[in-house]
Simulated scan of single mutants.
Amino acid sequence: MQHSSFTGKLFSFALAFSTAMFSISGHAALPVTVEPVTQAPLTSSLAVNGTLFGKQDVILTAGISGRVLYVAEPGQRVNKGDVLVKMDTLPLELDKARQKEILNRAQVNLKFHKQELHRLKRLAKSNSAAATQVDSVQNQHDLALSDIELAKIELKVIADQLDRATIRAPFSGIVSKRHKRAGREVSRADELLNLVDIDNLEARLYVPVKYLHYLQRGISLPIQSGNLDMPLTAQATVTSVIPATDPRSQTVEVRAELGKYNPRTFAVGQLVDVTVPLQSQQAQMLINRDALIIRKQGVHVVKVGPDNKVTQVPVEVGKGEGSLVAITPTEANVLKVGDRVAVRGAERLTDGQEVDVQPLN
Rank of each mutant, 00 (worst) to 15 (best):
L84S: 00
K96I: 05
S249L: 14
V78D: 05
A283V: 04
G81C: 09
T265I: 14
A151K: 03
L30G: 05
F53R: 11
E116Y: 03
Q76C: 02
A40Q: 08
I167N: 03
D339M: 05
L145D: 05
V134H: 06
L117A: 08
V343C: 07
S187D: 11
I64R: 00
P306N: 15
F266N: 03
V302E: 04
Q115A: 15
A28T: 12
V37C: 03
K55P: 02
A203D: 00
L221D: 00
S65Q: 09
G338N: 10
Q140D: 11
Q39M: 13
A165E: 01
E191I: 04
A182K: 08
D307W: 04
G298W: 09
Q279C: 08
Q224S: 12
F17G: 13
L117Q: 08
L143H: 05
M285A: 01
L360E: 13
A16G: 14
D82E: 12
P231K: 04
V274H: 02
G26N: 15
V34R: 01
R119Y: 10
D351L: 07
K177R: 14
D57W: 00
A62M: 01
A106T: 03
G338P: 03
H27W: 12
L335M: 08
D197P: 00
L155F: 07
A346T: 01
L120G: 03
V317M: 10
T132M: 14
F112Q: 07
T265F: 09
D229L: 12
H118P: 01
